[in-house]
Write a protein that binds this DNA or RNA. Structure first.
Lengths: 210, 210
DNA sequence: TTGCCTTTGTGACAATTGACACCGATGCGA
DNA sequence: TCGCATCGGTGTCAATTGTCACAAAGGCAA
């Protein structure tokens, strides 16, 4: 049972639906870096993010990774939707980018609520649509941009997430998210620093432009 | 009005639905290379592919392109689904890979049939799911694989589409689909030929392994 | 046949990125 | 304070890919 407090932020949901979500959903808290999902895991519930953000990553067979997109307040995971309906294991990794809170809704409700609540149906379709856009942006980044711009955009996204001027990450962590090496990130960060876009600190990067 | 012939291949659809599709859908034929959709275009109908295949490409601002995935018989375009429901223009390009036939279903039916026909709902969700998988594979290709393997896999996919041992394409066309240069493709094809995987001809590549 | 356009082949070189080695700086805990 | 693990900085070199220049080969039409 979830407190009314947490779900009333979804204004577009019917009161009855919010009630249903609170009744059947369970609250989950994640620390920064904690995993919600990993490749191979079967998903039996749909997460709706109340607070914080999740980083969605794709892994290859050797464990190499690449960042796909962030999920933030109000978002839900399209992978969970597809995995649940097809009863297949996840093919992505979801990890908390910051301390986060989410509601886990049992899969069975997905379909049932779609027929019952128009707002739920709209929400699910909007989720698909947004994740499609996110995936296309990930493709753009990989296909068309060089590492320096990919890094710069990643930093801006991370800063925007928490609306802060500091991004807390080591060079190695950034390298992992871009599927490159730590040295390359160090070099490119120095370049960005030379351009006056950032100031590097230990474990932390200061963003100089909005 | 579409002939019964063409839609009866969708065995999972209820007879009533097939009837409805035939009543409201319009048939469209595409020559190889003909465009069904381009970025910026508003989509007012959902295409269901009856014959042939479509190549879905992503473009950047400068017109550079990268291949995303193929749609074949029975498939529908998830982009159309998201674009229609959100009433936004397309962000991808769809072009016939071979002579193709499709049914165009008016957008209004999308929602209506979802409530009416369980099989249509399942079809739409399956479409989302499959395109998600396709996008993930595109990301894998871009993020984790080098150009030689990307080229080899593209050739295999193209050969599999038509179940033939010849792929009809110039080096320039392949280069465009992989967002690289013609010279690189030529070099890598020579390498594949050296490995005995293909034989190159003018305008045509002969696949040696299944 | 001749001319011309398209396609393919290739050498040389540059830019980007990846890999390795190694060192210095920072910060924490014993 | 010392020891140690983590993090960041840098030089060198290699692999991959992109770019340019130019030539050869294939095929079509006058």
């Amino acid at each position: 049972m979830v407190s009314t407090q947490s779900t009333t932020q979804f204004h577009e949901f019917e009161p009855k639906l919010i009630e249903d979500i609170e009744k059947t959903g369970s609250l989950k808290t994640l620390e920064t870096g904690e995993e919600l999902m990993r490749p191979g895991m079967y998903v039996r519930s749909i997460p709706i993010i109340l607070k914080g953000s999740l980083k969605i990553m794709r892994q290859d067979e050797d464990g190499k990774e690449t960042f796909l997109y962030f999920l933030t307040k109000g978002d839900t995971c399209a992978m969970s939707l597809t995995c649940c309906t097809a009863n297949r294991p996840s093919t992505v990794r979801a990890v908390a980018e910051e301390p986060s809170e989410l509601i886990l809704v049992p899969v069975e409700k997905l379909d049932y609520w779609m027929t019952l609540y128009p707002s739920w149906k709209a929400y699910v379709f909007q989720a698909y649509q947004r994740r499609f856009d996110d995936m296309l942006e990930a493709v753009d980044s990989l296909a068309f941009r060089k590492m320096d711009e990919r890094l710069w955009r990643l930093l801006k996204k991370k800063a925007a997430l928490q609306e802060k001027r500091y991004v807390y990450a080591t060079h190695q962590e950034l390298a992992d998210e871009l599927n490159t090496s730590r040295e390359v990130v160090t070099r490119l960060l120095k370049k960005l620093e030379g351009l006056g876009k950032i100031i590097t600190h230990r474990n932390r990067i200061e963003m100089m432009t909005k």
